[in-house]
Write a protein that binds this DNA or RNA. Structure first.
Lengths: 240, 240
DNA sequence: ACAAATTTGTACGTATGTATT
DNA sequence: AAATACATACGTACAAATTTG
């Protein structure tokens, strides 16, 4: 097995592995995949020779990182190792510090824009008509909702997921989705939404650019999409 | 049993908040900052009317996300909400799946390169001479170590931290550092390092480009820096 | 340097709630 | 509908670590 484990040189300094690490090692050694069942807490308690409470506390840690997934009354399974923990941590950080630290949301928006813009050439080249049609429907729904003064989080999130899916980089897709969630949660604390129609319309503009097959237009459209979002942020943080 | 959760100041909730959420709410409401002391486990157990084991399990979750920081025998404090949880989760995902899913490390490298390249113009414009000198010293150390066949993780990490610090985007700096850690950990499982001299020398080339004040050269130098890293990855995954 | 006090860490037993078959 | 397997919850006792006097 690849997992390096006490190789002669560290028996003086040898600190016993934590329960968390031993459970991780169990998953690694047994080559488990996401979704595979883990031993029950009682079995782990026996195998690792620690109490149930210790196992449970370790499972809470692993579960927070989505390394395991606990299904109440049924069992524990290897998790998908998604970025839900990052979302939770960042969202809390944003809610706690965005009053004092206006950079946080700004940095987040900059990152979102940068990552989306970066794949503009690829998107223009590869985005297929069906996906564009689906995105067009979402954009239309957004405009309708905005006209009624309603927000459109579900549509917006899915739109951006489809946009970045073309990149072929799964990690970026997951990261951007996390940033979307964090932005959505934190911006709620800044008061009611504003500039809804402008934001909704910006999605149509993005699709127009894609259909015009111009990477430059797409980049510009994406940047324009973030303008009203930044403007809203500016208004909110100015009023401190 | 369920002893109705008795905090009188908020009762609009249909489904009772989890212990984790109630502790988060405590931090939010009391406007605590990272480093501020939390109540002891016994106090929280009394205040929230749940057993200490429950409190401890919630603390494990919060601690995994660095929302609280627990110090044995001393107390619990509000955490820095760093990205350590992300690093742990991604590193484990990489170690578990990189054998089967070669995209993971590739996506990670692409992201690192993209983020560093993006701020090349700013770096060329703003990186001060002192920082460049410090980075030069690091690069020289790297070359020396490489010549002895030794690796240089500490120097490499610090080099890239200094490089991206210029961006002014703290979030990007933290993310890149996480990616560095994950890459470092996961690539260990691919076998011994290779192409060390090339990689070390690439850092000098980056500094040369910065001193030549050309954003284009810097971008090219950064991309060349990642070439031997990708090459090593290719060799490792080809041998599956 | 020592000891006491405080606080988190570990263990275990028992009872209860919950999802699946 | 019942049985089973499993996670959730509580309480107590003691161990280990850290600060403070």
């Amino acid at each position: 097995m690849v997992t390096q484990w006490p190789t002669a040189d560290d028996d003086a300094e040898r600190v016993p592995l934590t329960v968390v690490d031993r459970i991780k090692r169990y998953i690694l050694i047994n080559r488990l995949s996401p979704g595979d069942p883990m031993p029950t807490e009682n079995e782990l308690s026996d195998q690792l020779a620690v109490s149930r409470s210790r196992i449970r506390e370790a499972m809470k840690t692993l579960s927070a990182l989505d390394i395991v997934e606990v299904r109440h009354g049924y069992g524990t399974f290897v998790g998908a190792m998604s970025l839900t923990g990052l979302a939770e941590s960042l969202a809390f950080r944003g809610m706690l510090t965005s009053h004092r630290d206006k950079h946080f949301l700004a940095d987040l928006i900059d990152l979102r824009e940068l990552l989306e813009v970066n794949w503009a050439p690829l998107v223009v080249e590869r985005l297929d008509a069906d996906t564009v049609a689906a995105m067009r429907a979402l954009a239309t729904t957004m405009v309708d909702l905005a006209a009624q003064g309603r927000e459109f989080p579900v549509e917006d999130r899915q739109f951006h997921q489809l946009l970045v899916a073309t990149s072929g980089n799964a990690l970026v897709g997951q990261l951007l989705d996390v940033f979307w969630q964090v932005h959505s949660l934190v911006s709620e604390t800044l008061g009611p939404a504003s500039l809804l129609p402008e934001t909704a319309q910006a999605h149509h503009a993005i699709l127009d650019a894609i259909e015009s097959r111009s990477a430059e237009s797409l980049e510009a459209a994406i940047r324009r999409h973030y303008a009203p979002i930044r403007e809203r942020m500016r208004r909110a943080t100015d009023g401190l």
